[in-house]
Nucleic acid binder design. Structure first.
Ligand SMILES: [Zn+2]
Ligand SMILES: [Zn+2]
Length: 730
DNA sequence: AGCACGCCGACT
DNA sequence: GTCGGCGTGCTC
């Protein structure tokens, strides 16, 4: 570094895959990792200094001075900073946009990295009295006081967000003495003690003590345990050991796993500052959590994939719960895998990492095979429940009534008559996946996608599950005017109706994204099920995850055939995971559960194998197929995606990309070809698949030509992106 | 991506 | 005559 002012390499939030050089000018010299405000074209942007250099390759007359140094010290801890730079390189994503997606919004806007007090409002007795005497015109005041009454007399910053109010709008009420404004405590609440931990069974005990050995150093563990095997208790007791050492803990959960109940379980156990990063927070709350974690004021941070980028002063443990979950991979923009980056982060920060899953991803099983992860198993299910008995029901030639065979219904009847619960699983919400005209055969298609629209009878609407378009259910055929339109196929709504008809004196509830839209809905259903107020549960994969229902003895899988034949090489893995998870719902202490799978393909190897072996041996088999087929995790992949209003431009662009990459030895390109669902949300999409046996070769091959690709004339006509380690080819 | 500049068609 | 359509060029 030169003694005078260095030239600054700055990561600027732009889709361009490079950094920009600036002069320090009159500003204080910003440290590497500090934010600066810079002129960029005709706009002003906030960037991050990623290096000090002595000389720039850009001519000096083009270099502009920065406008302002925002931070007087690096914004991020060195490890995290380096991880982001590495990720920008690995995922071939513009470094400025990497910072933009990883930092809290207020920091991207240039807000100082300083904790600012937050306030909440407490309802007073006067306020409560005033509420009942409010005039009819006091709509806003009624809304505010009513909210406070509904929420234990408290209005928090995120409540204000939900009420679409700003703090000053509460001022009239505080002046009347109806509300009192109070500051939220910002100081640290260090770990003191935990509430009585549960007793561990020998397996749990072994797992905790094995992992405890690694506190203070990097070690990867795969904690393999079915739901109800007490995985969470193992996490909690390990976390406690880390907290005792005054270190911090990061807990990543899948998108659907971030519920108040999750956090409550932590809060009940640990008397320390626990932060939950959820989507309802205000920008300020998010920044304050970020800063408190960075300063070591918060001991535990729980969140979904983006929580991975929370800075910590002394990170002691990372937990990735349900590590196989697809929501750990970001599906747009900066397409990172939080699970993969978490392992690197743990390594960099010398902390152990626990990947938890009963149905681990092939990547993690492969890492276990290679000795990169230590495999710990919790085989014992809660209260010694036995593994379920699995029956593959051949429904070829059999009569199906709303997708249900008589044999399946009889089986359910047996369980219901004994006072047990049945789960009927179908991974398709809505009433029916399509609607057809009886007169001319017209089918309701989405205008913007290649797909039929799903009929939602309850809402009397057609809904495209791929682009979210919704239209009212037509009264007659738009082609021929025929009024008789009939649903084709089966969804959970229809299944629910059929089951109500088949079991008129049993209680049926449907649990899917539609029926649980209301905030408390899922929790209410879970309580009702656990209280035995429900006999039959109909639902999608929402039911397959997380919850353990002790009175559930039978699981019926209505239609899995669609999952057995798919072009996607990950389909087998996904289906095996799904079936294992659903099957895991059945069974209780005093008798084993039963799983009945309806299929037209009883001879399908996946079905044969899954239930003659367990998931663990099946995953080894899937892995050997992957190896034979030269597929991940034995090779690495990059998927170029491009979209435009016609297919022609994406194909042209990807053809040129393919030409650019064609010469690299060891790199194979397939395509370009139209995406499996070519038309989606009104765009035509194509892709180019690149594959390399050697890890890192993909990056080495693409990086040198990336600026050529960026400058291709055909690139201007499409929206394009690179997806490293793609999860879904859609 | 933004945001400019620039050059052609239908409006007050 | 100008308002605005989006083609293409640039950002240290
Ligand atoms: Zn018709
Ligand atoms: Zn659609």
């Amino acid at each position: 570094m030169p003694p005078s002012s260095p030239i600054l390499k700055v990561a600027v939030p732009t889709p361009l895959r490079r950094s920009f050089d600036y002069l320090v000018g009159q500003s204080i010299i910003p440290a590497i990792g500090a934010r600066v405000r810079v002129p960029f074209g005709r706009q002003q942007l906030v960037g991050v200094v990623i290096d000090h250099i002595a000389e720039s390759t850009t001519p000096s007359n083009k270099l502009k001075p920065i406008l302002e140094t925002i931070d007087d010290q690096p914004l991020l801890p060195a490890h995290l900073f380096k991880l982001l730079l590495w990720a920008s390189d690995y995922y071939l994503h513009p470094v400025g946009d990497v910072f933009n997606t990883c930092l809290p919004g207020l920091l991207n806007k240039g807000e100082p990295a300083i904790l600012e007090p937050e306030y909440y409002w407490q309802l007073t007795e006067e306020g409560e009295q005033a509420f009942s005497n409010l005039g009819k015109n006091a709509v806003k005041q009624h809304k505010i006081l009513n909210w406070a009454l509904q929420h234990q007399g408290v209005i928090s910053p995120e409540h204000l967000n939900q009420l679409e109010l700003i703090p000053s709008e509460l001022k009239p009420l505080t002046e009347k003495g109806w509300l009192i404004k109070k500051q939220i405590e910002l100081s640290a609440k260090p770990y003191t003690q935990s509430n009585q931990p549960l007793a561990l069974n020998p397996e749990q005990h072994d797992a905790v003590s094995a992992m405890q050995q690694s506190i203070g150093q990097f070690h990867g563990f795969l904690l393999d345990g079915v739901t109800g095997s007490g995985k969470t208790e193992v996490y909690l007791q390990l976390i406690e050991q880390v907290l005792i050492k005054k270190q911090q803990v990061l807990v990543l959960v899948p998108e659907i796993g971030l519920t108040p109940q999750t956090v409550q379980r932590f809060q009940r156990r640990f008397n320390c500052d626990i932060a939950m990063l959820h989507s309802g927070l205000t920008d300020r709350q998010r920044l304050n959590i970020w800063l408190k974690a960075k300063q070591g004021l918060t001991s535990i941070v729980i969140g979904t994939r983006s929580a991975l980028f929370t800075p910590f002063s002394d990170l002691g443990l990372i937990v990735v719960d349900e590590e196989h979950d697809v929501s750990y991979k970001q599906q747009d923009g900066f397409r990172y895998s939080a699970r993969d980056l978490a392992i690197l982060r743990a390594r960099d920060e010398q902390a152990p990492i626990v990947l938890g899953s009963a149905t681990p991803s092939m990547e993690s099983v492969h890492n276990v095979n290679q000795g990169k992860l230590t495999h710990l198993t919790l085989r014992k299910r809660a209260a010694d429940a036995k593994p379920p008995h699995i029956k593959v029901l051949d429904i070829r030639q059999r009569h199906l009534e709303n997708g249900l065979s008589q044999a399946l219904l009889d089986n359910m009847k047996r369980h219901l008559e004994n006072g047990n619960q049945c789960l009927v699983f179908l991974n398709r919400r809505g009433f029916a996946p399509s609607l057809m005209c009886h007169g001319c055969g017209w089918i309701a298609d989405c205008q913007r996608c290649d797909k039929h629209m799903t009929l939602h009878l309850q809402q009397k609407r057609l809904h495209c599950h791929h682009c979210d378009k919704q239209v009212f259910m037509p009264k007659k055929c738009p082609e021929c005017g025929e009024p008789e339109l009939f649903p084709i196929g089966l969804g959970t709504e229809r299944l629910e109706q059929a089951l109500i008809k088949a079991f008129p004196n049993k209680t049926v509830v449907r649990i899917d994204r539609d029926s649980t839209r209301r905030k408390q809905a899922m929790q209410d259903y879970v309580t009702a099920i656990k209280n035995n107020e429900v006999d039959i549960l109909v639902g999608t994969q929402m039911l397959a995850k997380g919850h353990h229902f002790p009175n559930l003895t039978m699981v019926a899988v209505v239609d899995i055939d669609g999952c057995l034949f798919s072009a996607d090489f990950r389909a087998t893995e996904r289906t095996a995971q799904l079936l294992t998870q659903v099957a895991g719902r059945a069974g209780r202490a005093d008798k084993p559960g039963e799983v009945v799978i309806q299929t037209h393909h009883p001879e399908h190897p996946l079905l044969l194998n899954l239930f003659t072996q367990d998931y663990q041996s099946l995953s080894q088999q899937i892995l050997s197929e992957r190896q034979a087929g030269q597929l991940p995790p034995y090779t690495s992949m990059a998927l170029f995606r491009a979209e435009a209003s016609t297919l022609q431009y994406p194909m042209e662009f990807l053809n040129e990309v393919s030409k650019q990459l064609g010469q690299v030895p060891g790199l194979d390109c397939f395509g370009p070809f139209p995406a499996p669902m070519a038309k989606r949300a009104g765009k035509m999409r194509a892709q180019l698949l690149c594959q390399a046996e050697q890890r890192g070769l993909i990056q080495r091959a693409i990086k040198p030509v990336i600026s050529i690709i960026e400058q291709l004339p055909s690139a201007r006509k499409v929206r394009w992106s690179i997806d490293i380690d793609p999860q879904d080819p859609f």
